[in-house]
Amino acid sequence: MTAPAGRAEDGRTTATTDPATDRNPTPDTDVVALLMAQHGQIRNLFDEVEQSSGDARRDAFRRLVRLLAVHETAEEEAVHPYVKRTADGGDDIVADRLGEEKAAKQALSALDGMDVEDEAFLPRLLSLRTDVMEHARAEERYEFSQLRRLNDPTRLAAMAKAVKAAEGTAPTHPHPGVESGAANAVLGPMAAVVDRTRDAVRKALGKDG
């Protein structure tokens, strides 16, 4: 007997190419799953920086800086506008997250200019980690939960595609003050990077995204 679509003959759920019927969201098909996975990667990189030294710490910190920069830019360009437009209390939710992101990027920028062997580096990193993890938990509680309530798997899949597109064009170093398009007018070359990111998001989401 032929198994139902999305089911193997032994009853196990199989992968499906239709995000609207995907009961097991993955980072490729669901923006919440993608961003949650990135939160896990960020936690792991903080661990790696803390537990290493010398060149290994420098390498791990470079990767942490890049991941934080592209993660936040992708959220700012692809996720926050949709939450602000559609979620209950979206304006306040997004305003709070943008404030947290700006403060974290300022702290990250300061760390980015330090030697990782400086005695002040690790205490500042630990302080940043606390702030970043609190921010991640707030996103998960107040923003990602709203995305789940919207219950639109097709839109969540499109947003995952948009986040990936944004990551490909996002800045690889933190730039405090670039939390909204309104701040871009006087930023010169950085504005061009943000414009490319926005263009990539719009292309991935379509003209109505």
Score class of each variant (00 low, 15 high):
2 T>P: 09
7 R>Q: 08
10 D>G: 04
10 D>E: 04
12 R>P: 00
13 T>G: 04
14 T>G: 01
17 T>K: 01
23 R>E: 04
25 P>G: 02
30 D>Y: 00
30 D>K: 00
33 A>L: 05
35 L>D: 05
37 A>L: 10
38 Q>P: 00
40 G>M: 07
41 Q>K: 02
44 N>A: 13
44 N>C: 01
46 F>A: 10
48 E>K: 07
52 S>D: 03
54 G>Y: 03
54 G>L: 11
56 A>S: 14
59 D>Q: 01
59 D>P: 03
63 R>Q: 14
63 R>M: 08
68 L>V: 13
71 H>M: 14
72 E>T: 15
76 E>N: 10
77 E>Y: 04
80 H>C: 05
84 K>E: 12
85 R>K: 14
87 A>P: 06
90 G>T: 01
90 G>M: 03
94 V>A: 08
96 D>M: 02
97 R>N: 01
99 G>P: 03
101 E>V: 06
102 K>Q: 10
105 K>S: 06
105 K>T: 07
107 A>Y: 03
108 L>P: 02
110 A>D: 14
110 A>C: 04
113 G>V: 12
115 D>E: 13
115 D>N: 07
117 E>I: 03
117 E>R: 14
118 D>N: 15
119 E>M: 14
120 A>W: 00
121 F>H: 12
126 L>Q: 12
127 S>G: 10
129 R>S: 10
133 M>R: 05
133 M>Y: 03
135 H>K: 03
135 H>E: 06
136 A>W: 02
138 A>V: 14
139 E>S: 09
139 E>W: 13
140 E>H: 14
148 R>Q: 15
150 L>D: 09
151 N>G: 12
153 P>H: 13
158 A>R: 05
160 A>G: 14
162 A>L: 06
164 K>R: 15
164 K>I: 12
168 G>V: 05
172 T>M: 12
174 P>R: 02
175 H>M: 10
180 S>L: 15
182 A>D: 14
182 A>E: 13
184 N>A: 11
192 A>F: 02
194 V>S: 00
195 D>L: 06
199 D>S: 09
200 A>N: 08
202 R>S: 04
206 G>Q: 07
208 D>F: 11
